[in-house]
Design a binder for these strands. Structure first.
Length: 603
RNA sequence: GGGGGCGUAGUUCAGUUUGGUUAGAACGCUGCCCUGUCACGGCAGAGGUCGCCGGUUCGAGUCCGGUCGUCCCCGCCA
């Protein structure tokens, strides 16, 4: 007989009755009746009830074994009597009468129970992550992550994409987030950087002729964390294709997303061909470049209506070149006064000076600002918003971009407050036509608004003839439920257009050559037109799992302050290791250690 | 770097508004009882620097100042 198991805990059924079986697993739960002892034995595959009778020599040992200890039992599969069948359990029709009992690994008292799904402090969970991962919810998330990766590979290879590995030790990139640096032993004072994304490598592979690239690529960025952004490292489904238009790429991504969400979640996909929203329109209607289109409440521009208004807040905003925007919260007129006060309190907490509102009740406009409105303005409002009796209007007024963003957050607040957001939906959209450049008011200069590798719409001619701030890029984002999953672009593969684009952003030709030597060189030896995208793998799994925090779908995440509480990273290193990277100079090692304020490593 | 929430037993939390005897409950832990449970049940017990430092007060978990930790957000994220 096998030393550990003849069956798994989840597979025993009625047809195994009378067989002698061996099971190994964790003690999930014990029910000690003094005269008879029940042990729920758990492994990866399920749960089985083991019964220990008091005449057995190991009865005392078994009754003392603590939850989560690993044991091996041998015994006979017995059919349960009808009264004792547990219909909740797949193995509930049988139990195993224990004849041999062995503790393989005794467990100490636990920092938190594994047999119940309760909330525990995250630092405790991360310190004992190996235990936390035994919880069903976390385990299911990790399995979902595995299936997501597997299905992605299946889909992508089925579509003719080639999977690559690109370097982890590479060079520091000139733009973007902070790099993680790795000191070089052979070249003291020199550093590798961990890649923020394999951006340049995948473009080089296109230039090498591989046509369709993909990689579930590790990316490293030294940024502060968020609920949906783990510090340090994350994964992207990195994709690049040659000889394509934007439309060709959208088809591939729509197919991948529909496949993943159809097979791995219960969310209903609102539209399998994702609607496309130009960036400018997204900002005007939703106040963000990642609109949540599971619900309406789109913003309308009523600046023209209030150009001559007696209501100074609105007229003033328009006179100063700003905007007056309005949201029609259909049916909200009957909400309590508290509802409107809470909405205003929210707007103020986001930085607004106030939140004007009007409720249409009994054929009249009611609310604090209604009395300022002329008949013409009332008509203008109604035609701009299609408002009818029972609706409520919420206003934002001020500088245009600021007002859009603020009222955009009010929109999401109202969507939640009015229960308009259906959690069972997956509402994808493309945001397209991002501007190529933007004005940096602090440094008073034009700069790239996304990444410098995008192809400007209209090519070289657009750069030469248009106002740079009017030039659009072949740059796009894919958004789901208000979460930005990915940015991508049709790339700029033409050295002459690169030079012109960088020139507009204030860099000379030498800068391009020095900053991006690989691409610069490669694009002089026959580069195919190409483009791609890189959806965030972790965020997709988050959406599939319905988890609000990215750490719940990562087996061993860093905590918010970028520490690994289990492994103790980051940590100080031996003098020997410091000597290696400081050119064997002992004096330098001492100065190095003295100079750095020694932030304590993780205990 | 900045803002907000939270910090009381191993854990989840009550108590803080209005300062006043020995700081409670549940789960977990330890011991005892229990032969059909499946979140088994019953009895008993251990377990607390109320995050830390200082202040006000006859008296501080409770009020004040500072500080630390943690989570969320802003900045940051080509």
């Amino acid at each position: 007989m096998h030393p550990y198991r003849t069956h798994t805990c989840g597979e025993l059924r009625k047809n195994h009755v009378d067989q002698t079986v061996k099971l190994s697993g964790w003690v999930h739960r014990k029910r000690d009746h003094g005269g008879v002892l029940f042990i729920d034995l758990r492994d990866f595959y399920g749960l089985a009830q083991a019964v220990v009778h008091p005449d057995r020599a190991f009865f005392d040992e078994a009754s003392r074994v603590r939850p989560e200890s690993v044991i091996t039992i041998t015994g006979q599969v017995v059919a349960r009597t009808p009264e004792t069948v547990n219909s909740e359990l797949p193995t509930g029709e049988i139990e195993v009468t224990v004849e041999e009992f062995k503790v393989d690994s005794a467990a100490d008292a636990l920092p938190f129970p594994v047999n119940q799904e309760l909330e525990y402090p995250e630092d405790t969970r991360l310190t004992y992550r190996f235990l936390d991962l035994r919880h069903e919810r976390l385990r299911d998330n990790i399995l979902l992550r595995s299936r997501t990766a597997q299905l992605t590979r299946e889909y992508m290879t089925g579509r003719g994409f080639i999977e690559f590995h690109t370097p982890i030790l590479t060079s520091s990139s000139p733009e973007g987030a902070r790099d993680y640096l790795v000191p070089s032993r052979l070249y003291p004072g020199h550093f590798y950087a961990l890649p923020q994304a394999p951006q340049q490598f995948k473009q080089l592979l296109m230039t090498s002729g591989f046509d369709k690239y993909f990689q579930i690529a590790p990316c490293f960025r030294d940024e502060d964390s968020r609920a949906d952004r783990s510090p340090g490292e994350f994964y992207q489904i990195d994709i690049e294709m040659s000889y394509i238009t934007q439309d060709d790429l959208f088809v591939e991504i729509e197919g991948l997303m529909v496949r993943l969400f159809t097979e791995l979640s219960n969310r209903k996909i609102v539209a399998e061909t994702f609607p496309r929203i130009p960036y400018r329109e997204a900002m005007e209607k939703f106040g963000t470049d990642k609109p949540d289109i599971r619900f309406g409440l789109e913003m309308a521009d009523v600046s023209d209506v209030f150009r001559e208004s007696e209501f100074k807040v609105f007229r003033g905003a328009v006179e100063k070149g700003g905007a007056v925007k309005v949201i029609n919260a259909s049916g909200a007129a009957e909400q309590s006064r508290k509802f409107f006060d809470d909405a205003e309190a929210f707007a103020k907490s986001e930085g607004a000076k106030g939140l004007a509102w009007i409720a249409l009740r009994d054929g009249e406009m009611k609310g604090p600002v209604a009395k300022f409105l002329s008949e013409t303005e009332r008509q203008g409002l109604i035609s701009a918003t299609n408002a009818k009796d029972g609706d409520a209007l919420f206003f934002g007024a001020g500088p245009r971009d600021e007002t859009n963003q603020l009222l955009g957050r009010v929109r999401v607040y109202l969507g939640n407050a009015l229960n308009l957001i259906d959690e069972n939906l997956a509402a994808f959209c493309w945001v397209v036509d991002f501007p190529m450049f933007e004005w940096n008011p602090d440094e008073k200069k034009v700069e790239f608004s996304h990444n410098p590798f995008s192809m400007p719409q209209g090519g070289l001619e657009a750069l030469e003839t248009q106002d740079p701030l009017d030039v659009l890029a072949l740059q796009y984002d894919v958004v789901c439920n208000g979460v930005e999953l990915s940015s991508g672009a049709i790339r700029n593969h033409r050295p002459d257009i690169m030079v012109k684009a960088f020139e507009i952003a204030g860099y000379d030709r030498a800068t391009v050559e020095n900053k991006f030597p690989a691409l610069w060189k490669a694009f002089h030896y026959g580069a195919p037109p190409h483009g791609g995208i890189a959806p965030g793998f972790d965020r997709i799994v988050m959406l599939l799992a319905g988890e609000p925090n990215i750490r719940e779908i990562i087996a061993f995440p860093l905590n918010q302050r970028a520490q690994d509480l289990l492994m103790g990273a980051p940590s100080m290193v031996d003098d020997r290791q410091l000597l290696d990277i400081l050119g064997n100079n002992k004096r330098l090692v001492e100065e190095f250690k003295k100079a750095l304020t020694q932030k304590p490593s993780v205990e």
